[in-house]
Design a protein around this nucleic acid. Structure first.
Lengths: 103, 103
DNA sequence: ATCGTACTACGAAGATCATCGAACTTCGAT
DNA sequence: ATCGAAGTTCGATGATCTTCGTAGTACGAT
């Protein structure tokens, strides 16, 4: 089984603006909440979403390029995980603030 | 001198999604940073921004309707203040996280 | 080697958004 | 009562974004 990480910004390349823009979309917020409940990561197909697979891939790419999540391949699957440490170090409290919100 | 508050959502009507969407825009982030440095509030014309007055008004309205800031009139001027308490209570750490970010 | 699964990349369509100028309102000052 | 300053609203324009279907890639299993 092969394992490969997809390109993503280094911690010091992450910009608030991009992170907030990435998070300010309902579907992507849903993805983040799903990932928060799965520290070991989730395959993108496993997240229940009201959009097609290609749209799903689009949103995951935006989140990854913003630096919000990390993705690596495991066979044909792509496992995504929240970049909790990086986000917490850059914007302490932001993630928690978002995740603890009533929804 | 007349004083009147402009319509804005109650604390329990504020939605994360709207807040994040409001904050995920460069000009609006600039406004928030300016407001954070002025606890007593700022007249919208006093914030240096690379946009015209009407665009400025547009952004302030979005921020107000999202529940991020509060606006009241003072004569012909409109003073805006960050809704720090409400935001801190709803999403603890979020504002601080954003404001302490390198930019 | 062929097949199915999981996912991505591309191009198009429609929706949403930022921006502007022009017209209008409101207030304070002359 | 007229003027100027501060700010808003409206409609239009162009840019950006979400969404989709189709076609394609990569991998594991048969």
């Amino acid at each position: 089984m092969t394992r490969k990480a997809l390109p993503q910004p280094e911690r010091d390349e992450i910009r608030v603006e991009s992170v907030l823009q990435a998070l300010g979309e309902p579907v992507r917020l849903q993805i983040i909440r799903a990932l928060a409940d799965a520290p070991e990561g989730i395959a993108c197909g496993e997240i229940e979403l009201p959009v097609t697979a290609s749209t799903r891939a689009h949103h995951l790419r935006i989140l990854r390029e913003a630096g919000v999540l990390s993705t690596h391949t495991e066979g044909t699957r792509r496992i995504s995980t929240l970049r909790r440490e990086d986000l917490e170090s850059l914007y302490p409290g932001l993630l928690t603030g978002i995740l603890t919100a009533r929804h």
